[in-house]
């Protein structure tokens, strides 16, 4: 167990190092984006101001020193000061994080519930027309890229049918009569991007659920349950889902990685103010501290989730004494 913890620490250290090195590998430095060099702004920065700026943000020091400084700040939960965005990185991230969590969390929940239900249903009716239709249509949805689905959804539901807004996360400057109104407004903006993101994820949970359910249905205790005359619902949910949910649970870390990718596309298509769009924009203006912050949060949550799953999957597993590794 201790060696395992050590290994995870190593993984986290490697991630920190990569987070630090990768943005700095890009050609150019952030001052390009503060001056007229990279943009059409009428700014010319003389050499002195430029070096002063680099010095101000600590970018003139040798890389190792910068890295140690970065680690030291991290230990104090200080993510640094954004160069282009000109504010504390932690403030910037904290403002955006709830939106991403809302979008990704809602869609994940919807996808998990729908995937489990549909997967159980398809497995129970394995080989039927319903099963085949479900498998091929859900796989078809996953084969469509998120940005394409998103664009088509905007076109159909926002532009043609005018049911939903074309983008954004809430109505700007609306004075809501009550908290309820504010909530409804946010849900109304959330609906389309969350549905697109759900559609992208649903096939994943569905297929895992279906295959482990197919396997479970063949087990003898299921046949016993049927022989005992338990109803369909009881059989499927009390025994089937319960046993089939484990593979779903152990796949969470992988799933999160996939979710990050799709979220970036969805956020950029719907102009949704989350971390994904921030990552893309920060890369475009070389804002190292912001990039590091975004990378850190995403990779730590993936590692964290993996650790959590590693430590808790036995709780989800109805059978006891499941072998380690």
């Amino acid at each position: 167990m201790i060696s395992k913890a050590g290994q995870y620490l190593l993984v986290i250290f490697a991630l920190l190092l990569l987070n630090f090195i990768l943005p700095r590998m890009m050609p150019g430095d952030p001052t390009d984006f503060l001056t007229g060099t990279a943009v059409d702004a009428p700014i010319d920065l003389d050499a002195e101001s430029r070096s002063r700026l680099l010095e101000y943000h600590g970018l003139d020091k040798p890389l190792t020193e910068q890295f140690l400084g970065y680690l030291g700040k991290l230990a104090r939960f200080d993510l640094g000061f954004a160069i282009y965005y000109r504010r504390e990185v932690s403030d910037l991230l904290l403002e955006r994080l709830p939106w991403t969590l809302l979008l990704a969390g809602t869609s994940f929940l919807l996808a998990a519930i729908a995937g489990v239900l549909l997967g159980a249903l398809a497995a129970y009716r394995q080989g039927s027309r319903l099963d085949k239709t479900l498998v091929s249509s859900l796989m078809g949805v996953r084969a469509m890229p998120a940005y394409l689905v998103g664009m088509l959804a905007i076109l159909l539901f926002s532009i043609k049918l005018k049911l939903f807004p074309t983008g954004g996360a809430c109505s700007p400057f609306a004075s809501h009569a009550s908290v309820l109104d504010a909530g409804l407004d946010i849900l109304w903006h959330l609906a389309l991007p969350a549905l697109v993101l759900t559609a992208e994820q649903i096939a994943g949970t569905f297929l895992i659920m279906r295959s482990s359910m197919v396997a479970t249905l063949g087990e003898t205790y299921m046949l016993m349950a049927e022989a005992k005359g338990l109803s369909w619902g009881r059989r499927v949910f009390r025994y089937g889902v319960r046993n089939a949910i484990l593979p779903l649970y152990t796949q969470l870390g992988v799933h999160l990685g996939f979710l990050v990718t799709v979220t970036i596309f969805t956020e950029s298509v719907f102009n949704y103010p989350g971390m994904g769009r921030l990552a893309y924009e920060a890369a475009m203006v070389h804002d190292y501290p912001v990039l590091q912050g975004v990378f850190l949060i995403t990779s730590l949550s993936i590692v964290g989730l993996n650790i959590l799953v590693d430590c808790t999957y036995r709780l989800v597993d109805p059978r006891t004494g499941h072998a380690d590794e």
Binding site: Y8, V11, M25, T261, F295, T298, I302, V303
Partner: peptide, 21 residues
């Protein structure tokens, strides 16, 4: 553990960075 590191790196942001580089 190397696999873990790579699996934990967010894939698309990483691609964006690499492509930019």
């Amino acid at each position: 553990r190397t696999v873990d590191v790579f699996l934990a790196m967010p894939r698309l942001p990483l691609l964006i960075l690499l492509a930019a580089y």
